[in-house]
Design a protein around this nucleic acid. Structure first.
Length: 486
DNA sequence: TCTGGGGTCCTAGGACCC
DNA sequence: TCTGGGGTCCTAGGACCC
């Protein structure tokens, strides 16, 4: 246990809204609401002027508009917030190298790690906190609230205790006394569900929570969380400030303004989400093994379906087929009486670090490596075992409806000459199929455009006809419109 | 009023192996 | 023939945070 409250927690006040007011002087002093402005948007941040009208975070924008029709409703500009966030984090690192960002507008700073030596007493901590707050105001024009304590929990609760522009230092030894009168809901990690359960046990304040035995808490909340809460309620929190935290998962999800009603549009949406999540995965230099698809029905029923691949990968050609295998079941489970899908998501977890050494070895093994397009993608493919391709044979004409072509994307196909392949994309009048055939070089993939017989003008038609027997047009296994949940 | 998008951590059951 | 226990992995869901 520290004898000086040397852990700081910094929390920017109404961050997104404050950035907008800073950026646009006409918004200053006026209610500003940042968040989803669409049909199904929710509020991210409300300025203090808007909060006076009863507008708050996580509230549906529709309700906010009713409560505060005269506010400015703005879509978030994450780029701008990120820039200012970097400035703030930079200031924090001038104080101590040990900074743990929690989000764009929040961070812990451990003053014990200060290069010029840790603070000797509470007064010194207070001086640092005030100086920090002043620097943030000076360089960003925004206010922050600062809390200090001997643990992360106390620092966090303290920064919230006197918002906005507050500075609360909880002296070492006084933690319990300071926490006791607070409602349990103030404790980090106690949400609505836990608060309800605690209330039924007669605990509304931290003092009352402390009266509960450890055994009681564990049986009520489970082993990990019950034990943790027992310690937290006594101001005991051993968690350390940690500068680097490794990502565990990457995910992308969208809520659609109108429910998706058929499998065609659902599969098209999943294809798009999978491409986005793979892009993010690669940007972070990660590969991942477990693919998760999330679906939310009209009535908010939310289900996830996941599948673990044989090895980690960042290759859409492995991740998209997995996502498409999962989505039908997820969508069916999320929809009751054939109603629509309001949200879809694709996530990747069980992340591994990108193996640089393997990449180089792989590139050297490839005689004629060309650093562009699909070939580059293939050279980047990690040493994952591709899932076996099921022998789905697709016959018949290419469907005309655009939705049907979208549905084709990701489908496995088999060609008598070229072996197994899958539909990479379905554009107007043609589909692009990737084959991994016996005469393609090891680890390489050949991309062919397969022309619809009605569209002979397509550039690659000549190539396609040379390679493929006329009767082997790639088309849908299922001809038309299966319904969701049917 | 009708519920975003990005995450983390925990639990619990079943499969599988030793 | 019947019956174990422990460990690990996978899947699904839930609570929570910003």
């Amino acid at each position: 246990m520290r004898t000086v409250p040397s852990i700081l927690h910094i929390d920017m006040d109404a961050f997104f809204a404050a950035v907008e007011q800073r950026h646009k002087p006409s918004l200053r002093g006026k209610p500003v609401v940042v968040g989803g402005v669409g049909l199904r948007g929710v509020v991210s941040t409300a300025s203090y002027e808007a909060r006076a009208f009863g507008v708050g975070s996580a509230m549906p924008t529709a309700l906010a508009r009713r409560r505060c029709p005269n506010a400015a409703y703005l879509f978030p500009r994450f780029g701008a917030y990120h820039e200012i966030s970097q400035v703030v984090m930079g200031i924090l690192r001038e104080f101590s190298p040990l900074v743990e960002p929690v989000s764009m507008d929040e961070a812990f700073v451990d003053l014990e790690a200060m290069t010029q030596g840790p603070p000797k007493d509470e007064q010194e901590v207070r001086a640092h906190a005030r100086r920090l707050s002043a620097l943030v105001a000076e360089r960003t024009g925004l206010t922050a609230s600062v809390g200090a304590g001997t643990s992360k929990l106390v620092a966090k609760v303290a920064s919230d205790a006197d918002k906005p522009h507050g500075c609360v230092v909880v002296a070492a030894g006084s933690e319990q006394r300071w926490l006791d009168p607070l409602p349990v809901r103030k404790l980090w990690g106690v949400g609505p569900a836990t608060a309800d359960r605690l209330h039924t046990m007669g605990a509304t304040t931290v003092a009352e929570l402390r009266a509960l035995g450890e055994h009681e808490l564990v049986s009520l909340l489970g082993n990990a969380w019950g034990g943790q809460l027992f310690r937290l309620s006594r101001g005991r929190d051993e968690r350390v400030v940690s500068a680097e935290r490794e990502a565990k998962s990457v995910s992308v999800e969208d809520t659609y303004p109108h429910d998706l009603m058929d499998l065609y549009s659902i599969r098209a949406a999943v294809t798009e989400l999978a491409e986005r999540v793979v892009r993010r995965l690669r940007e972070g230099g990660h590969t991942g093994r477990t693919v998760t698809v999330k679906a939310r029905g009209h009535d908010f029923t939310t289900v996830t379906r996941s599948e673990t691949l044989a090895g980690p990968t960042d290759d859409v050609r492995l991740l998209l087929p997995a996502a498409l295998r999962l989505v039908d079941g997820a969508a069916a489970a999320a929809t009751g009486q054939m109603r629509g899908i309001r949200l879809l998501g694709v996530g990747i977890s069980a992340l591994a670090e990108y193996a640089q050494g393997d990449l180089i070895a792989e590139l050297e093994g490839l005689g004629e490596y060309t650093p562009q397009g699909a070939e580059t993608d293939e050279a980047h493919a990690p040493p994952a075992e591709p899932a076996p391709v099921p022998a789905v044979t697709m016959y018949g004409p290419v469907p005309e409806a655009p939705e049907a072509r979208h549905w084709l994307a990701g489908q496995d196909v088999r060609h008598p000459q070229w072996g197994p392949g899958w539909v990479q994309g379905a554009g107007l009048g043609r589909v692009t199929v990737r084959f991994e055939g016996p005469d393609t070089p090891p680890g390489r993939i050949k991309t062919l455009d397969v022309a619809d017989p009605d569209l002979e003008a397509v550039d690659s038609a000549e190539v396609a006809r040379a390679a493929l027997p006329q009767e082997a047009d790639i088309a849908a296994e299922r001809p038309a419109g299966p319904d969701v949940g049917g």
